[in-house]
């Protein structure tokens, strides 16, 4: 049994906005394991992104416990969370969130500059197959290329975990597959614990572990006895 990386217990999250209360998480228990790819499935509003944001230190839970290895994320201060993200977490978002004023190489360098033990930006870009596009600005890249730059940026610091929120949500399936292959390769070559949020059910085939969300809770959890390579997945 691999070691647990994330352990979440009875997590709840309530958003209070003036006089409206929205309960995004209603008691989530979940464990993610070292080196595994986990896919989190569920309709929009089911709480996947909220959970991912809490795991990534972008947000904090209203109640419950969440631990990253020996770090307690529940009571962490703003400063500690910044440190945590900087040292351990790589993020990939649906809309890439690249800095438009920096080239692909520079977008990656943004992270390698502040990470303790990074690979070079060129190595990271090579891992996602973008070595020839290093000098291009985001506006000069296709959507798939931009997302791969975002992945390169996320993994360049050799993060312990890679959190991907709808990484192929804005891409066509051919491009999406290239992106998934990149994620798959990172996981295989670097052993980075990876969590992928998606509402594309077929993608579950590439995961070690699959969670389905419904209405702020985990509705089911399963292990794939056999994983399918990303390039074979069709949706």
């Amino acid at each position: 049994m691999p070691e647990a990386v994330f352990v979440a217990r009875s997590l709840t999250k309530i958003y209070r906005n003036a006089d409206v209360e929205v309960q995004a998480l209603r008691g989530v228990d979940m464990t993610l394991y070292e080196g595994e790819v986990s896919v989190l499935l569920g309709p929009s509003g089911s709480g996947k992104s909220t959970l991912l944001n809490i795991l990534g230190g972008l947000d904090s839970a209203t109640s419950g416990d969440v631990r990253f290895r020996d770090h307690d994320l529940t009571g962490a201060s703003e400063r500690e969370l910044t440190r945590y993200r900087r040292d351990h977490v790589g993020f990939v978002f649906q809309f890439y969130n690249l800095i438009p004023s920096l080239t692909a190489w520079e977008n990656v360098a943004l992270v390698t500059d502040i990470a303790p033990d990074p690979m070079t930006p060129s190595q990271a870009l090579a891992l996602v197959g973008l070595a020839p596009r290093e000098k291009h600005f985001p506006a000069q890249l296709s959507g798939g290329e931009q997302q791969r730059v975002a992945i390169a940026r996320a993994i360049a610091k050799r993060p312990d975990v890679l959190l991907c929120d709808e990484p192929i949500g804005a891409l066509d399936s051919a491009t999406g597959r290239v992106v998934l292959e990149a994620i798959e390769r990172i996981n295989a070559e670097l052993g980075t614990t990876t969590a992928i949020i998606t509402h594309n059910a077929p993608i579950r085939a590439m995961a070690h572990r699959v969670f389905t969300f419904h209405d702020g809770r985990i509705a089911s959890q399963s292990l794939n006895a056999e994983r399918k390579p990303a390039r074979e997945i069709v949706w």
Partner: peptide, 14 residues
């Protein structure tokens, strides 16, 4: 705001 938020996400301090 978006790119600054991205920087925060990447672990840059305030």
């Amino acid at each position: 705001a978006r790119e600054l938020a991205s920087l925060r996400v990447l672990g840059f301090t305030r």
